[in-house]
Computed example of a mutant assay.
Amino acid sequence: MKTLAPIFEAIERSAHRIREAITNEDLCYGESCNATGDMQLKLDIQSDLIIAEEFSKITAIKAIASEEKKEAETLHPEGRYMIAYDPLDGSSLIDVDLSVGTIYGIYDGEFQAKNMLAAVYVVHGPRLEMVTAYKGGVRHYIFRHGRFQEQETLHLKEKGKLNGPGGTQQYWPPHHKKLIDGLFAEGYRLRYSGGMVPDLHQILIKGGGLFSYPGTADKPEGKLRKLFEVFPFAFVYETAGGEAIDDKGRRLLDLGCDDPHETTPCFLGSKYEIAKVKEAYGV
């Protein structure tokens, strides 16, 4: 933990600066698209710059990769750690005042899931919150009285109550629709905001459920990016006692990654729900 402490401190500083930008800055779009073709809000760009600036101060960080950049950027060639991040997940929700977040994956060496040491995400909502997954524990922090104060250690139950299905329903494969409908028939409650951070955060805080983003007719390889979104949350959920797989039943953290913006179908949740996914997908 001590070796990563400067990185966690930089994430905290970034969280405060991004929070300030969300509160006070313009919400309009910039003049460019990110590497996957999404139009960039000025807040996306500003958040990316804030994080890069804070990380540039830490000589232990060798390189960073951002959802908003086409390629990884070397900061300190002699550094050890590589960090991939989504600076402002769900930024399109800001204009309707819903929670958004920032996602980080911290790697020892190359950007491969097998090298991940820790994952962190920050929730910008009614409260500023942070969740860290590192060495066997998922810890929850809330910003109060001028500092992040540790709350409980988070664990997923064997079975949850929330169902967060992503993707456009008209493009779902029939077996996926049957899976989702079956969970609702069991009494699961819908959780879908359009933001990965708030949806997965609620499932984690409430003790369990399923978040899914399948391969669809319009996006057969899924929409969510391995490095910036999928791997960090897979690390969080596994550390909390859950599971995280793709549509072939493979553990997400066993997948390779050949391009920073590579995507994958993903299913994250409690053990009961992941067993239901495997049954529905025949894997």
Rank of each mutant, 00 (worst) to 15 (best):
M1Y: 00
K2M: 01
L4D: 04
L4W: 02
F8I: 08
E12T: 11
E12A: 14
S14W: 00
A15I: 08
H16G: 07
H16I: 05
I18F: 04
N24L: 11
E25W: 00
C28M: 05
N34Q: 09
G37E: 03
M39T: 05
L41K: 14
L43N: 07
L43Y: 01
I45C: 03
A52D: 03
F55G: 11
I58M: 02
A65N: 07
E68T: 13
K69N: 13
K69E: 11
A72K: 13
A72Q: 09
E73P: 01
T74A: 08
T74E: 12
L75K: 07
H76S: 09
H76A: 03
M82T: 15
I83P: 08
A84C: 06
Y85D: 06
G101C: 12
D108Q: 12
G109S: 08
Q112K: 14
K114Q: 13
A118M: 04
G125R: 07
P126H: 03
R127S: 13
T132L: 06
K135H: 07
H140L: 09
F148H: 01
Q151F: 00
Q151H: 07
E152H: 05
E152R: 14
H155G: 00
H155V: 03
T168K: 08
Y171F: 15
P174D: 14
H175Y: 11
H175D: 06
Y188G: 11
R191W: 00
G194I: 09
G195E: 01
M196Q: 15
M196R: 13
H201Y: 14
S212K: 03
P214M: 03
A217K: 14
D218K: 14
P220M: 04
E221C: 12
E221S: 14
G222L: 04
F228D: 07
P232I: 06
P232Y: 01
A234I: 08
A234N: 09
V236I: 15
Y237W: 02
E238N: 15
E238Q: 15
A244V: 10
A244T: 11
K248P: 00
L253S: 10
D254Y: 02
L255W: 01
L255A: 07
G256T: 13
D258N: 15
D259S: 15
L268G: 09
G269D: 03
E273P: 13
E273R: 08
I274W: 02
A275R: 14
V277F: 03
E279I: 13
